[in-house]
């Protein structure tokens, strides 16, 4: 736990110094909304169409962060330094997944208002708590799978390609649940109460991926 906090603190400090990821992720989200506006040629969206746009946009932005998550460790010897220390290897998974979760939450802080401004149905406000609940859960799956995929991809030659290629199919169950879950919340006369089925699916998928990643992660760190 203490080790994970140490790494997390270092990661956040590094991001604060370099601002390599967050601004790019937020920018990409905003520009994607603009592109969707022209691609779909609609001023406001509702229902499943809106849900799809939001999910895909967040996914693309998340992918940027996922690709860069381990680059500093790989290029500046962070892996070796970590492996030389007498600490539990799983701390790296916990720290990186938490860092990614924080980046995603910050990204959504920008992306959600932009979405509301550019595309969302007029009365999104009443659905907001349920929407946030869905994103909080889907961020979990994104963070864990993102960390896992990034740890694999960073050691390949084509890491920018391998990451999304493995990551996207693995994320699909979470994407399906998020998109179908928030679709009804974004209809014009939404009730604002979330679908229990999709929340449960997301929560279970979070749990499933977390356990699986925990079980195999050590093998990715070994030299």
């Amino acid at each position: 736990m203490r080790t994970a906090l140490t790494i997390l603190r270092k990661d956040l400090l590094l991001e604060l110094r370099t601002l390599e990821m967050l601004p790019a992720m937020a920018m990409l989200a905003v520009i994607t909304f603009v592109i969707f506006h022209f691609g779909l040629s609609r001023d406001t969206l509702s229902g499943q169409l809106a849900a799809g746009e939001l999910t895909v946009t967040l996914l693309f932005s998340a992918m940027l962060g996922i690709n860069r998550l381990f680059v500093a460790e790989r290029e500046q010897g962070g892996f070796d330094a970590f492996l030389l220390a007498p600490v539990d290897r799983s701390a790296m998974l916990l720290a990186k997944a938490t860092a990614l979760y924080i980046y995603l939450a910050l990204l959504e802080l920008v992306a959600l208002p932009a979405f509301a401004l550019f595309a969302a149905p007029p009365h999104m406000g009443s659905s907001l708590p349920a929407l946030i609940l869905f994103l909080a859960l889907s961020n979990g799956a994104f963070a864990v799978i993102g960390t896992f995929v990034s740890a694999i991809a960073v050691h390949t030659r084509a890491r920018d390609l391998i990451g999304p290629m493995i990551g996207l199919p693995l994320l699909l169950p979470a994407l399906i649940a998020t998109s179908l879950g928030i679709g009804p919340l974004l209809t014009v006369h939404a009730s604002g109460s979330p679908s229990g089925k999709w929340l449960a699916v997301l929560a279970l998928y979070d749990l499933f991926t977390a356990l699986l990643a925990y079980a195999v992660f050590d093998f990715l760190l070994e030299e």
Partner: peptide
């Protein structure tokens, strides 16, 4: 679609041992 990345993944890791290990992790997950 997921398993289509198995071969590219193996191909893009040069170190044989690491290739086998990462491929195994991929196969399990």
């Amino acid at each position: 679609l997921l398993y289509c990345t198995y071969q590219p993944l193996r191909f893009s890791i040069e170190d044989f041992e690491r290739q086998s290990r990462y491929a195994a992790v991929f196969a399990i997950v």
